[in-house]
C-alpha cells in the first residue's frame, strides 16, 4: 500500500525532501486558508455561540420546537437531573437560576428546573441571524452601493483616460512627448501617502470632500496604467492605423475602433488591478469621506471595530460580505491577476 501511495508520476519513491516540501505546503494551506475559513464559519454562528468559550469548530444551533399554546418556537433543553432527567423539554421562560419548562406532549403543565440541571439540545447548522441583523440594523446596502459605485466608475474612468493618454504617447510623435513621459515616470515615485495634506485642500477646493467623486477622481490617472497600456500599444503595427486614415477615419475613431479592441488584454489587466485597488482602498477614503452614509465597506468595517467592545456578530458577517465579491470575481481570473500583478509590481 505505502509504495503505491508514495509513487510519484516518475514512478520513483518520494525522497525525504519531498515529504518535507509537502509538509511545508500543507502547513501553508492551514496557515493561509485556515484563518479566513475560521472567520467564514464564525460568521454563521449565533451570537450565543460566539460567546462560547472555548470556541467550537462548527456552528451549533439550539433546537427550537413549536409547542401548542405558544406563538413562538421554544428552545429545547435536555434535563440532566431531577424527576424529568433524560427528557427533552421546551423552555417557556427563565427567571434567575430557575427555568420554567414544559414537556412538548403536555404543554399545559409548567415544571420548574434549576438551570444547572438542563443542557441545550444542539445540532450543527448555519445560523444566518448575523446577516439578517446586519441588513436590519446597519445601512449595509448603502456601504455596498458606495463601494460598488466607486469601484465601477473609477475603473471605467481609469481605463478611458489612461488608454487615451497611452494612445497619444505610443502612436503620435509630437514635441514634448519625452517631457510628458518623464513627468509620468516621476509620479511613480510619489505615492498619495506623502501628499495627503495638500491633496485634501485641493479636493476640498473642487468641492469634492465627503463625496464619492472625491475618492474616484484623484487616483484616476495611474502611471502604472499608462505604462502598461503604452507598452502594449507600441506592439500594434502603425500600418493598420495608416490604412484606416486612408479610409478617412477620424483619429478618435481609430482610437476606439482599432486601438481599444486590439489592446483588450492589457485593458483587462488594468481593469483587474483597478477593481482591486478601488475595492480595497482605505487611507484616502478614510480622509476624504466623513459622513457615514458615504462610507465604503472598508470604512464601515473599520468604524465598527471598537477599541474594547466590538460587535463581532455583525462585524464577522460584514467582513465575509466584503471579501466575497472580490474572491468570487478573482476565482475565475486567477491567472490574469497573477501575471498582471507580477508584471506591474502591484501598484
Amino acid at each position: 500500500m505505502t509504495p503505491f501511495l508514495t509513487r510519484t508520476r516518475g514512478r520513483q519513491r518520494l525522497h525525504w525532501t519531498d515529504w518535507l516540501a509537502y509538509a511545508y505546503l500543507c502547513l501553508g494551506v492551514l496557515l493561509m486558508f485556515g484563518p479566513v475559513l475560521w472567520l467564514v464559519i464564525s460568521s454563521f454562528k449565533t451570537e450565543r455561540e460566539l460567546q462560547h468559550y472555548p470556541p467550537r469548530l462548527l456552528p451549533y444551533v439550539q433546537k427550537m420546537e413549536k409547542v401548542p399554546g405558544y406563538s413562538d418556537p421554544l428552545p429545547v433543553f435536555k434535563v440532566t437531573a431531577g424527576p424529568l432527567a433524560g427528557q427533552e423539554v421546551a423552555q417557556v421562560r427563565r427567571i434567575g437560576i430557575v427555568s420554567q419548562v414544559v414537556r412538548p406532549d403536555a404543554p399545559q403543565t409548567i415544571v420548574k428546573v434549576p438551570i444547572k440541571d438542563r443542557k441545550p439540545v444542539e445540532h450543527v447548522a448555519l445560523a444566518t441571524s448575523n446577516y439578517a441583523k446586519l441588513f436590519k440594523r446597519f445601512n449595509f446596502f448603502q456601504f455596498f452601493y458606495n463601494s460598488t459605485f466607486i469601484t465601477v466608475v473609477a475603473t471605467i474612468i481609469t481605463l478611458l483616460i489612461n488608454s487615451m493618454a497611452a494612445f497619444a504617447l505610443s502612436k503620435y510623435d509630437f514635441r514634448g512627448r519625452g517631457t510628458v513621459m518623464a513627468l509620468i515616470i516621476g509620479t511613480l515615485m510619489i505615492p498619495p501617502t506623502v501628499v495627503l495634506v495638500p491633496l485634501f485642500l485641493i479636493v476640498r477646493d473642487f468641492g469634492m470632500i465627503d463625496t464619492l467623486w472625491g475618492v474616484i477622481i484623484p487616483g484616476a490617472a495611474t502611471p502604472t496604467g499608462v505604462f502598461l497600456l503604452r507598452q502594449y500599444m507600441l506592439t500594434i503595427p502603425d500600418e493598420i492605423l495608416d490604412a484606416a486614415r486612408m479610409d478617412k477615419a477620424s483619429e478618435w475613431k481609430i482610437y476606439w475602433r482599432i486601438i481599444l479592441p486590439l489592446s483588450a488584454p492589457a485593458l483587462a489587466v488594468l481593469a483587474i488591478l483597478s477593481i482591486m485597488w478601488r475595492w480595497n482602498d482605505f487611507l484616502w477614503p478614510l480622509i476624504a469621506l466623513q459622513r457615514q452614509e458615504h462610507f465604503t465597506l472598508q470604512l464601515a468595517l473599520n468604524s465598527f471595530r471598537g477599541e474594547f467592545n466590538t460587535d463581532w456578530a455583525s462585524l464577522l458577517a460584514m467582513t465575509v460580505l466584503t471579501l466575497v465579491p472580490i474572491v468570487a470575481v478573482f476565482a475565475f481570473l486567477q491567472k490574469y491577476i497573477a501575471t498582471g500583478i507580477a508584471s506591474t509590481g502591484g501598484k
Binding site: L25, M32, F33, F282, T322, L323, I326, A338, I341
Partner: peptide
C-alpha cells in the same frame, strides 16, 4: 493558496 491573501483588503 499562497497568493490569495494579496487580493484581500487590508481591513479584512
Amino acid at each position: 493558496v499562497f497568493f490569495f491573501p494579496v487580493l484581500l483588503s487590508p481591513v479584512v
